[in-house]
């Protein structure tokens, strides 16, 4: 059990490529923090610097209030779950679980006890004597988790652990990881590029872009108040629509927006087909495509005048026809004001 402190960390690769710019982040004891961002944003590099698999160019990483910059991965007392599981193919499942403990000189009876416990928790007892290649993807994933659990480390590091699984299994394993982490209360850092996975797993979400942190917070906070245009576009599906303030002015009620606002974010699910009877803007748009997806329907719309394409998420059985031009309403309270040049929220 430990907190992880990342202080003024920089990573510069050979050839002067900066992967991480002066990054600060504190991961409190027992929390599950998810690093999310597009590929190449530096999230994996950051995780690997915490693990000790990547050198730290500047700044410090501390685990449990000890600077670990110079420590070997094994000395940091962390466990890692890799994207391709990285199970030792020539060892049995039991051998895989035991290897790290053996290397640390754990007594035999303690090893047996821990392996039995991990196998019970993860329900992999029947496979203990099999080789990894005899297991299914989901089972391998459990073994990889088991290898982390038996160590009882200060922190778990997850590097996109679910991306090799099919969608259904991914959903199941996501729940299991969350449940496991809740019961073990081990500090965890989880890297993913899947925003849905990030939202559902995280106690706290860290959105990264181009080697910098865009925003840190509880998942719902980030959804409701994205601090930057990047976060606004990255979190939420379908993504937030961004409409020019100049276009919105004069369409509906009076707009009172903070100084410097020139772009407004509109979540697809805040677009309504009926006048809400509150201060709102009215948009007229032609329905290009009506996309029923079950619980709701997505309308792909072309705005009158500007020709911009936007997406609205409306109740499933909204009575509209493709090709029709209809009025749409967005409450002024639901607008997210941004400044285009700074990329930041203005309120």
């Amino acid at each position: 059990m430990a907190s992880i402190d990342i202080s003024a960390v920089k990573k510069i690769y050979a050839g002067n490529v900066t992967a991480i710019h002066n990054l600060d982040l504190t991961i409190p004891d027992g929390e599950l923090v998810v690093l999310v961002g597009p590929s190449g944003c530096g999230k994996s590099t950051l995780l690997r610097m915490i693990a000790g698999l990547e050198t730290i160019t500047e700044g410090t990483v501390s685990i449990d209030e000890q600077v670990v910059n110079k420590k070997e991965p094994a000395e940091r007392d962390i466990a890692m779950v890799f994207q391709n599981y990285a199970l030792y193919p020539h060892m049995s499942v039991r051998g895989n679980l035991e290897y790290g403990l053996k290397n640390r000189g754990t007594p035999r009876d303690e090893i047996d006890r821990r392996v039995a416990e991990a196998a019970r928790i993860l329900e992999i007892e029947p496979f203990l004597d099999r080789r990894p290649r005899q297991l299914s993807g989901g089972q391998r994933q459990r073994v990889a988790m088991g290898r982390a659990i038996v160590r009882k480390p200060k922190a778990f590091l997850f590097d996109e652990p679910l991306s090799n699984l099919d969608a259904k299994l991914r959903g199941q394993m996501r729940i299991e990881i969350k449940r496991l982490q809740r019961s073990l209360k081990t500090t965890s850092v989880y890297v993913t590029h899947d925003q849905l996975e990030a939202m559902t797993l995280a106690d706290r979400l860290v959105v990264m872009n181009a080697g910098r942190i865009e925003q840190v917070g509880a998942p719902i906070e980030l959804y409701e108040r994205p601090a930057t245009l990047f976060v606004a576009g990255f979190i939420g599906s379908p993504p937030m629509n961004l409409i020019e303030v100049d276009y919105l002015r004069g369409r509906g009620d009076d707009l009172k927006l903070p100084e410097g606002t020139d772009l407004c974010g509109v979540r697809p699910d805040t677009i309504q087909v009926a006048d809400p009877g509150e201060p709102s803007v009215r948009l007229d748009a032609t329905i290009e495509l009506y996309e029923p997806i079950g619980g709701e329907s997505h309308l792909h719309l072309r705005l009158e005048g500007s020709g911009q394409l936007i997406v609205a998420a409306v109740p499933a059985r909204t009575a509209v026809v493709e090709g029709a031009t209809i009025p749409l309403f967005v409450r002024i309270a639901d607008l997210h004001p941004f400044n285009r040049d700074s990329g930041r929220r203005t309120d």
């Binding site: 698999l53 991965p73 962390i78 994207q83 199970l87 290897y99 290397n103 290898r147």
Partner: peptide, 23 residues
């Protein structure tokens, strides 16, 4: 040989010669 195998071994406390011999 996947990079992760060597990384996993390092996290598991294997030094270079141990990784060579065991993995």
């Amino acid at each position: 040989v996947p990079d992760e195998l060597m990384e996993a071994a390092r996290v598991d406390g294997a030094g270079p010669m141990k990784f060579f011999r065991d993995i």
